[in-house]
Write a protein that binds this DNA or RNA. Structure first.
Length: 265
DNA sequence: GCCCAGGAGCCCG
DNA sequence: CGGGCTCATGGG
């Protein structure tokens, strides 16, 4: 197995998949050149000037909450619902009732939790308006976001990177799985461990931090899945997974529980 | 039917 | 500080 560094790894992922153009937006200004859009509506590859308005910043922040432990397609449907009802705006959502908001974002899963958290998040934005958050440095912004209920380390970092365009590295379950399989860690790393590894290896450049996270998601969704399809993987020569053929069981607790529950019925 | 998804909070030893 | 549990819809 050949060793590969995080910088070279980025180059290979980019060469393989190309720019991903995160974060997707529904409220993309209609006067923006439509050729800037990517293969999916709302993506804008090679353009790092979005979001441009506070409305777009709010949409991205909302999206980071809606997509928590949820596929983007499900979160996107919830955003689409709000958009179609002309409710995809801070001053509209804050006025919705718990039940009304819950029904609109139902497709994103955990809608009871998310409905409360989004309404609380709106209250948070009254105390700390986007105009104020924009002026903060990464550390203060991260601290104040994580302090809010419903915003953990990943959601905070996603907001900072994709909504506020500040170079902080976003770690998710994909990233940990990916790095662990490649052999960067002996035991499963914590969020902060993973984050430090990237930030020490990669200079804080917005476009690179943006694309790197998006590229890892792209790779993890299609190749480095829960049960990986290593036969199709272009990173095989650099991956420990290629040598250690160990059967992995990564059942989630809720699935295990529901299975037992159903069996006992 | 089962598995999994761009997590976070809470509780417990 | 780490592990288990809960929340829940929808696509493959």
């Amino acid at each position: 197995m050949m060793k590969i560094g995080l910088s070279a790894l980025f180059d290979k992922l980019l060469a393989q998949y190309g720019e991903q153009g995160w974060w997707p937006l529904l409220s993309l200004d209609p006067d923006i050149n439509p050729t800037l859009r990517g293969q999916f509506t709302g993506y804008h590859p090679k353009v790092y000037s979005f979001p441009k308005t506070d409305a777009q910043i709010f949409e991205i922040m909302l999206g980071t909450i809606l997509t928590q432990n949820t596929s983007w397609t499900n979160a996107d449907k919830a955003l689409g619902n709000l958009w179609q009802n002309r409710l995809l705006a801070f001053d509209k959502i804050e006025k919705l009732s718990f039940d009304k908001l819950g029904s609109l974002i139902r497709s994103s899963g955990y809608f009871n939790q998310k409905s409360v958290r989004i309404l609380e998040f709106c209250e948070f934005l009254h105390i700390h308006p986007i105009s104020q958050l924009k002026k903060m440095n990464i550390e203060s912004l991260r601290k104040i976001l994580i302090n809010q209920r419903g915003i953990g380390p990943e959601t905070a970092d996603s907001m900072i990177l994709y909504a506020f365009k500040k170079p902080t590295f976003v770690i998710d379950a994909y990233t940990r799985r990916f790095l662990t399989r490649l052999g960067f860690f002996k035991t499963s790393p914590t969020y902060e461990q993973c984050k430090e590894l990237f930030e020490e290896a990669i200079p804080p450049e917005l476009s690179k931090y943006n694309e790197y996270h998006a590229l890892i998601v792209q790779h993890a969704v299609h190749i480095c899945k829960t049960t990986p399809t290593c036969g199709d993987c272009f990173l095989k020569p650099f991956c420990k997974q290629n040598i250690v053929k160990k059967k992995r069981k990564s059942q989630k607790s809720n699935n295990t529980k529901s299975k037992i529950f159903k069996k006992s019925q």
